[in-house]
């Protein structure tokens, strides 16, 4: 789960992934994790706009989707509606960085609400419930692990047909020209198997990320952080739900972006999610949970709030971390009387 409101686009996540997994030959251009500035950023170039244009009539009827998914819209001879990025499309990984939605006129100054907006969208493979990459592979080289839902490309079986690259609407599979196979985010499975969150989660400076396991909608557990945020509070939403893959990265939408834009990205629940987030100061459990993001390396399966402290525990209920909702305030006077020194802030 990613809280877009807290991302500062420092790209620490991008580099944490890059240094861990994609420093090899043929992986130079790959960013299994990327952070793009919306509305104009995208990697590969226009990955989202291209498919949004191709997919006809994305009609919502309230919370129900009346349009067609990319599986239902597959042209004759294809398994999904897809397209292939060209090499050049990977050449501008941070296009549109910090560009805001409109013109900022001379003489403007910062005011609230912002006269213009942009936000950062961090993206990894969504380890979709219905992965289009998997559906596209005619060889069955891609599999979704039963035990944890992680979607992997079998590097022994892959023959580099790049059908998965074509099929994934999020363009999160990459072809490696040196090994001749397609590669993708592996959700740091060796870490997840040990109950430790992936690299891009634990290295996140903005503490925007929380990894865990989501229950099926009917089996939501109120003490599971992800169940609480997705199923109960409905504050976190999937990216482009209309594509039909049920992506498993859930985003808390940016509250300073227009609701119409958020709806296009995150579906009809965006307005209510923004409202719920704004109300966090009056919603102690929600506020407490937001403090849990980035607080521990371990996967938190349960949480409990007591007063202004939230405790995250593992599956067996053993505490992993305790986080105060308010940090103590320390004031450092400008003059240190004891040492007769004037303090300065180093740049």
């Amino acid at each position: 789960m990613f809280d877009t409101n807290k991302c500062i686009a420092c790209q620490t996540c991008t580099l944490a992934c890059k240094t861990t997994w994609t420093s090899g030959k043929g992986q130079e251009y790959m960013l299994w994790n990327n952070v793009e500035t919306k509305p104009y950023g995208s990697y590969p170039l226009a990955y989202d706009l291209k498919l949004l244009e191709m997919l006809d009539g994305q009609q919502w009827n309230g919370a129900k989707y009346d349009g067609k998914t990319i599986f239902e819209s597959a042209p004759a001879g294809e398994r999904v509606l897809g397209w292939r990025p060209e090499q050049q499309d990977y050449a501008y990984p941070n296009v549109g960085e910090d560009d805001c939605a409109g013109q900022v006129d001379t003489g403007s100054f910062l005011s609230l609400p912002h006269m213009n907006w942009f936000f950062y969208l961090a993206r990894i493979c969504n380890h979709c419930t219905y992965p289009a990459c998997l559906a596209s592979c005619s060889r069955g080289s891609i599999y979704k692990r039963q035990e944890d839902g992680i979607v992997l490309v079998d590097q022994d079986r892959c023959r580099g047909y790049q059908e998965c690259v074509r099929g994934c609407p999020y363009k999160k599979v990459f072809f490696n020209p040196m090994t001749g196979t397609s590669e993708k985010c592996i959700a740091c499975f060796p870490k997840m198997e040990q109950g430790i969150q992936p690299q891009c989660f634990v290295n996140c400076i903005g503490k925007i990320r929380l990894a865990g396991y989501l229950s099926k909608p009917g089996e939501a557990r109120a003490d599971n952080p992800l169940d609480y945020l997705v199923h109960i509070k409905k504050i976190a939403l999937p990216l482009f739900p209309q594509f039909g893959l049920e992506p498993n990265v859930y985003y808390i939408p940016p509250i300073h972006a227009p609701v119409s834009f958020n709806r296009q990205l995150f579906g009809p629940g965006a307005g209510a999610a923004m409202k719920a987030y704004r109300n966090a100061p009056n919603d102690m459990d929600l506020a407490a949970l937001l403090c849990l993001f980035g607080s521990t390396e371990m996967v938190v399966s349960r949480f409990q709030r007591s007063g202004e402290t939230i405790t995250g525990s593992d599956e067996k209920g053993s505490p992993l971390v305790r986080v105060p909702m308010r940090e103590p305030v320390h004031v450092r006077p400008a003059v240190d009387a004891a040492n007769q020194l004037v303090r300065i802030n180093c740049p």
Binding site: K25, Q155, D156, G160, G180, T181
Partner: peptide
Amino acid sequence: MAKRYAPARALGNVRSG
């Protein structure tokens, strides 16, 4: 160490040069 960054080669996938 090079193998760690080329999983298909590490696995002996004939497809990878």
